[in-house]
């Protein structure tokens, strides 16, 4: 039997149920993992850190969640090559946990932005969560701290090692190099600011998100 997807639940996570729903639509089992619990890595086929406002975004977005007990197991899973995906706040958490480089800062507009964007996947990218190479995904964003930044050498390294997964075709938040999503050097740990779980059905406006979340099912 196929193992379920593990969906991390921190205090203040609010897209957790949406991820469960998305996997139900994909015909794949998904289970919550509570932030305070340690878990058996082998029980899952991969891990998702959903969006939301973990710990109310207090201190810094994702900073507190990055130190939750369950995250130490996620770290081991990441090292072992398990697929790990952070979405929105999940991206911020993975950066704070140093599982991904860079940081997410206030949008240039200085406002929360809810809008649809187009993000293009890198033709030569190594991201294992990418459903389609060189593809333009239509997905919604909803964040105020979504501007990706990193020092010049880190950006260069991301480029050189093909870790840039997704770039905005029209940059909404001032992210450096138009970055919407990146992955680690081995490609198994990835994150993006847009919400694939909100683009699962045509009635939502797009079903492109299924190409990303569906990677765990393929």
């Amino acid at each position: 039997m196929k193992r379920p997807v593990g969906v991390l639940r921190f205090l203040g996570t609010n897209c957790d149920a949406d991820i469960l729903q998305a996997y139900e639509w994909l015909g794949c089992e998904a289970k919550y993992i509570w932030w305070a619990d340690h878990f058996k890595i082998e029980d899952y086929c991969g891990f998702i850190l959903p969006g939301g406002f973990s710990y109310g975004d207090y201190l810094r977005c994702g900073a507190l969640a990055a130190h939750a007990p369950a995250m130490s197991d996620v770290r081991v899973a990441a090292e072992k090559g398990y697929p790990v995906l952070g979405i929105c706040n999940g991206f911020q958490i993975l950066c704070e946990a140093a599982l991904l480089p860079g940081a997410l800062t206030k949008n240039l507009s200085r406002q929360f932005q809810d809008q649809w964007v187009e993000v293009k996947s890198n033709l030569t990218g190594i991201c294992k969560w990418d459903g389609k190479k060189n593809f333009k995904y239509k997905l919604p964003i909803a964040h105020s701290m979504g501007r990706f930044i990193a020092p010049g050498d880190v950006l260069k390294s991301l480029e050189d090692k093909n870790q840039i997964w997704l770039t905005y075709t029209k940059n909404p938040n001032g992210a450096m190099l138009d970055i919407a999503g990146i992955c680690n050097v081995t490609g198994n740990v990835a994150a993006l600011m847009p919400h694939p779980e909100r683009a699962m059905k045509d009635w939502m406006g797009s079903s492109d998100g299924a190409h990303i979340l569906g990677k765990l099912n393929s």
Partner: peptide, 27 residues
């Protein structure tokens, strides 16, 4: 106004603030 609101969290939104009737899907 409404681009400062998260209109899709919950993943049920079909139409939101850009139309005069909001429509949400009951999955």
């Amino acid at each position: 106004i409404y681009t400062q609101y998260d209109q899709q969290v919950g993943a049920k939104t079909m139409y939101a603030c850009d139309d005069y009737v909001a429509q949400l899907v009951l999955p």
